[in-house]
């Protein structure tokens, strides 16, 4: 086992430091002079970068936690949809893309939609967990 804190904790600590310590300082200098037109554009740009960096750290932290199971579930779904016994996520995604492009597999659109929606839900849980809730949860089929 690697020394603690582990990768997950470290990434969250970096995200927190950026959000709580770096962004407020940059926000102060970005809006130091009241009219928007004369605010410091470099500070505003740096604040934007710091926010993105913090968000990316949180994404990577969630990925470490959630992706192994998510990947396995999507692989199982795709094997079922395409009627295959093996294949990696990349191979299966490419195979699905090819079948959709050529129309070869004569796949049922409802089944494709279900499998894609489940896969997207798992990726969204990593990339932006709140996104599905923002429309009141009634958005997905």
């Amino acid at each position: 086992m690697i020394d603690r804190p582990d990768a997950h904790r470290l990434l969250l600590a970096v995200a927190e430091a950026l959000t709580d310590e770096v962004v407020p300082v940059l926000s102060a200098s970005a809006s130091a002079s009241a009219p928007v037109q004369v605010a410091d554009p470099e500070a505003a740009a740096a604040r934007y970068t710091a926010r993105i960096a913090a968000n990316l750290c949180r994404i990577v932290a969630r990925e470490a936690e959630l992706w192994p199971q998510a990947e396995a579930a999507t692989v199982a779904d795709l094997r079922g949809l395409l009627g295959r016994d093996g294949g990696s996520l990349e191979e299966l995604s490419r195979a699905l893309d090819d079948e959709l492009r050529t129309g070869a597999g004569d796949l049922d659109p409802g089944s494709v939609h279900r499998v894609l929606s489940a896969a997207v839900g798992r990726r969204l849980a990593i990339a932006r967990p709140s996104y599905g809730d923002d429309l009141g949860g009634g958005h997905r089929s």
Binding site: E90, S93, R94, L96, D97, L100, V112, L116, V120
Partner: peptide, 8 residues
Amino acid sequence: DPHPTFRF
């Protein structure tokens, strides 16, 4: 990379 959602 393949993006089957967009293809669909």
